[in-house]
Design a binder for these strands. Structure first.
Length: 420
RNA sequence: GUGGGUGUAGCUCAAUGGUUAGAGCAUCGGACUGUGGAUCCGAAGGUUGGGGGUUCAAGUCCCCUCACCCACCCCA
């Protein structure tokens, strides 16, 4: 394509965004409906927040130091001079909605889900897009580790239920404000001692987020990281008990998981439980789902002291690993010839649609042969024949395209035949 | 933001620096004006991503640029 401002430029979708066309959209619809059904079995209700939010929401909620906030947000100033951001993630919006509408005073469980687009100004690659879609799940106000286990069991069951078999569920704990500082400084100290053997990125991580050294892909760093202190040795009593109880519940559910001490989450607000579901069949962007607990986020955000836990599932990443073929829809194709028949055909199309049958009628005015050919190619289940004779008698022909059989009758009788 | 790869018809791909850039599939029309996705015949479809350069001559070589793909960073 030609560059900006050049003549002959064709318009294309914005970099990192994609059209989801008929043929593929049916897979999305299936994933969305199955997801909704599954989450609602666990008592979740849909909460729909706007796509745009005040920029400040993410600065406070997601964290000023995160990559998302420092370099990945779509931010603009609106005509009223407000700084607006297309949401890069959903959790802050839910927190805002709870505070704004005082949902915490309703007495109902604060279990929410949402499926929709998120926006991050990343460099696109496989499994990573500038507009992408997440299934987002949030629970606020429940601190029992039984919930942590229930959520992981639900997430695991959702992905398996959709047909991704080669998955692995990873769990870890990242401690809390009481115990993490000691761990961080121990880690920083240890990393500093061997820093000449770490990559540049890790030397940088050493300062602001030493936990992330654990998920570096450079072999030298991985090797060093193996001898680094583990979080489990630093956990406070509360975090230790929480993690033990969480695992106990997972065992009771029979969920297969692996404790990965290197699992850290990218967002600042996580506390205690962290989990991820990855696809084992290879590929780089293999994290299909990630989440954890964030017990301090709501309070830091200026809201009530409510703990929270949740996850986000990447819909594109999930669908890339699915091979489901939705059932083709069965529909009726109306063929007609002549002016009077055309008028009747239009009337009959409406009659069948009102009767609940998907009906397609086209107005090309071609031969019956042509129209039949087209009905066959489009995959019509039935063809309704409306010619001069039929129109005059009020008795029409209905052909079953798969069987090749044909019956005659008045419209209401044919409708019954199609619906049975 | 950093690095690598690829750009030719709607799609998948051909074309030693040398005629008017081709093929398959798809589309449309005809054979075929009351019954099928087949077959045969035909048509349409392109500023070879864009711009500049080298050359008698560029789809092909060089530079720039854009887009897509892949990887890093980070994340879903």
């Amino acid at each position: 394509m030609s560059g900006e401002g050049q003549a002959g430029k064709t318009l294309t979708a914005v970099k990192g965004t994609h059209d989801i066309l008929p043929g593929e959209v049916e897979v999305w619809q299936k994933v969305e409906s199955e997801t909704k059904r599954w989450l609602e079995l666990y008592g979740y209700k849909e909460l729909r927040a706007p796509i745009i939010e005040p920029t400040e929401l993410f600065q406070k909620g997601t964290g000023e130091t995160t990559d998302i906030v420092t370099k990945e947000m779509y931010t603009f100033v609106d005509k009223g001079g407000r700084s607006i951001t297309l949401r890069p993630e959903y959790t802050p919006s839910v927190a805002r909605a709870i505070v704004e509408h005082r949902l915490d005073l309703l007495g109902a469980p604060m279990r929410y889900y949402y499926i929709g687009p998120m926006f991050r100004y990343d460099k696109p690659q496989k499994g990573r897009y500038r507009q992408f879609h997440q299934v987002d799940v949030e629970v606020f106000g429940e601190k029992d580790p039984a919930l942590d286990a229930e959520i992981v069991e639900m997430a695991d069951g959702l992905i398996r239920g959709l047909g991704v078999a080669e998955i692995e569920t990873l769990i870890n704990t990242v401690g809390c404000r009481v115990c993490r500082p000691a761990f961080s400084s121990a880690l920083r100290e240890r990393a500093a001692a061997v820093q000449d053997r770490l990559c540049g990125d890790c030397r940088r991580k050493m300062e602001n987020n030493p936990l992330r050294i654990f998920d570096c892909k450079v072999e030298g760093c991985r090797e060093q990281a193996r001898s680094f202190p583990k979080i489990t040795g630093f956990l406070c009593a509360e975090c230790r008990e929480h993690f033990a109880a969480f695992r106990g519940h997972l065992d009771r559910y029979g969920v297969a998981y692996r404790h990965d001490e290197n699992l850290v989450r990218g967002l600042d607000y996580y506390t205690k439980t962290a989990f991820e579901i990855i696809d084992r069949s290879g590929g780089q962007q293999n994290a299909v789902l990630g989440g954890g607990r964030y017990d301090d986020m709501m309070r830091d955000f200026g809201g009530p002291d409510l703990c929270g836990i949740g996850f986000a599932l990447g819909v594109e990443r999930l669908i890339a690993r699915l091979s489901i073929k939705p059932e083709p829809r069965r529909f009726l194709y109306v063929v007609h010839q002549g002016e009077a028949a055309k008028a009747k055909a239009i009337e009959l199309a409406r009659f069948f649609r009102r009767g609940g049958v998907e009906t397609l009628i086209e107005f090309g005015g071609r031969s019956f042969r042509n129209q039949f050919g087209r009905a066959g190619k489009l995959g019509a289940a039935w063809v309704l024949i409306v010619g001069e004779d039929e129109t005059a008698k009020g008795i029409f022909q209905l052909k079953d395209m798969a069987a090749g059989t044909q019956v005659a009758g008045p419209p209401d009788e044919l409708l019954k035949g199609v619906r049975s």
